[in-house]
Design a protein around this nucleic acid. Structure first.
Lengths: 345, 345
DNA sequence: TCGATCTATGCAAACGATTGCAGAGCCTCT
DNA sequence: AGAGGCTCTGCAATCGTTTGCATAGATCGA
């Protein structure tokens, strides 16, 4: 049982004097690696005292001495974006298992806050970083490499080689969408793209282009718009622009679910029904994508796994700092719901 | 500019020898409170050296010495539950402003993980806790009080008096719903309750009961079911049970949006249309509640503010540990969407 | 010009752990 | 029985800051 009234924390020394040994002995008993060095009898007495006095190691003192914090930092662009919480959860679950704590920082997509937060992470000597905010070309990433902190990019990666990352196979996702749409008979397909400075935005676009090309189809340039952010608002804007061209299309693929949602609004406003008039597809399969009206057909990015894998790579990197960078692409999945249908007569 | 190749971190001593002064002088310059003690000329030289060598304070050493970590821990039951991210975001934003970092722990609703995480927080000497996992009677809370760590409950509170908390005024929310429904002519109202061991579950139920009572109406006991968790699944189960009674009702209020979503499914499965046949109301106004089919009428819990207020109170409590506990109830708001309508002839 | 008052800096002791080194006791082998 | 080798424990330095105290100059008033 823990002591109740004790004003001041119990330290190694306290329990040492209680048992009548030197603090270093206590330290050894408490560390599994060195526990073997001390007599069982004493070790047990120490255990008892630890229990009795409710000793808890002081993480600062430990970290100061060992230069290891058992903490990792996670950088996300927007905490309330439902796409990122599964990633954090994935990271958290494997990190907790490994005895690490996770520090999260929300950057709200502003570079300056990003920098400040990384700075703070460094002061706190995080053992590693997982970065979910990376741009395809990102000074912050360069900085991290120069600094030598282990880090891995999640969901979004950079053009740099030699950085670890775990992302979804966006090209494959694009191909899956095209296949699905082609099978339904769609040939006139519009695309609402995301920011091209993000790997997700860029690769998804490439995936669609490539996928169409492989089917002998082509993306009509006039039927492509790019939003400046992966938001509903930008989705609306883009869809609006598309509609304004008055060019005919029967399917619309958006670079993520949020943008697709924005497209829903614009289509409805224009009196177009989904999927009867226009099929819509998104990317991510964010939580509740299946609850929208209509339930959204989308590419499921294995967000939880992305987080978990990123965490595993990071742990690896922390334990042996000179393992080469590792990049993995997880397999996405096509989730067919009600927003896609055959092309209308 | 930061040094690039330096293998080892720059310390106070490094910059002290660079300038030719004692480390303590450097320390004083860097601390705004003591900067005045040292000559401007030297202070500026120190600033320059700090810049040149890229000095960053070692947070461990600081914390070890000062016994202050500028870290707070946040306990949430489920990171992927969209209701909790705005809270975290709210906390994070005010904490970041104040120079604090936030450590999050996801407990997945299991008591044991809760304990372990609090334990870990303590080892890390967090300056305070915000707890979003509280049960109405919660040993963990008792424990925290005994331990003396500053903490505040967010969204969910306990029956204990003397603990700080910031929650939404659930009773008022209930009353708002009842008013809205009554105005639409509903008198036969069913209730899908949440877990009664959570303050939200309990108070929302009380709010509805009270609200109805005030209107001279009564809740038919047979038209009340309680789920064991605030989940879609439990919402489905509860709605199913309600439907099985074959008792007539024209409106259904669920203890949160997730449960309401579950109800949607069951109603649809039973061939009932919302809102034509049955009006549905939820609680929380979680992200995308307006995107469901139909868009959900609900009580908006000011989640972001809950987080921000909780953080403010916590900071207060940290700065002056003997301020009395403060509990605030934020005003919720009724968001009328398309899931509620007049009662069918 | 000399003591008293101030100011600006240095000194050294913490904070709580870890760990290489040294040494005390004991066992074993010849 | 004595030398060498183990095993177990203590010692003390160290990690990087902060901060109370001491002190060296500078300043000032008489």
């Amino acid at each position: 049982m823990a002591e109740t009234g004790s004003k001041t924390r119990v330290t190694l020394r306290d329990i040492a004097t209680e048992v009548g040994v030197h603090p270093s002995t206590v330290s050894r008993v408490l560390n599994p690696k060195t526990r073997g060095m001390v007599t069982d009898e004493i070790a047990q007495k120490i255990d008892a005292a630890v229990e009795k006095l409710g000793y808890r190691p002081n993480a600062f003192a430990q970290s100061l001495r060992t230069n290891k914090s058992f903490t990792v930092g996670v950088l996300v662009p927007d905490l309330t974006n439902a796409a990122f919480t599964p990633i954090i959860k994935g990271i958290d679950s494997v990190m907790e298992e490994a005895g690490y704590s996770v520090l999260v920082a929300n950057t709200d997509n502003v570079t300056d806050r990003e920098r400040r937060n990384v700075e703070k992470f460094r002061e706190r000597h995080v053992d590693g970083l997982v970065i979910a905010t990376a741009h395809r070309q990102d000074p912050l990433i360069d900085d991290c490499r120069a600094e030598g902190t282990p880090f891995v990019c999640a969901v979004r990666s950079t053009t740099d080689i030699g950085v670890s990352s775990v992302v979804s196979d966006e090209n494959l996702g694009g191909a899956m969408i095209v296949s699905h749409l082609a099978q339904l008979g769609h040939t006139r397909i519009a695309y609402v793209g995301g920011p091209q400075f993000l790997s997700t935005g860029y690769e998804r676009y490439q995936g669609i282009v490539q996928g169409l090309h492989d089917k002998g189809l082509d993306l009509d340039d006039e039927l492509v718009t790019f939003g400046e952010a992966f938001t509903e608002e930008e989705g609306r804007r883009a869809a609006n622009k598309l509609l304004a061209t008055r060019k005919k299309f029967t399917a619309l693929v958006a670079a993520n679910d949020l943008m697709a949602l924005g497209c829903y609004d614009e289509l409805a406003a224009a009196g177009l029904k989904c999927p009867e008039d226009i099929s819509v597809v998104g990317f991510d399969d964010m939580p509740f994508a299946g609850k929208f009206n209509p339930p959204l057909t989308t590419i499921q990015t294995p967000l939880l796994d992305v987080g978990a894998e990123a965490a595993r790579i990071l742990l690896d990197q922390i334990d042996n700092p000179d393992t080469p960078a590792r990049s993995i692409k997880l397999r996405p999945e096509l989730i067919v719901r009600d927003s896609t249908g055959g092309v209308a007569g």
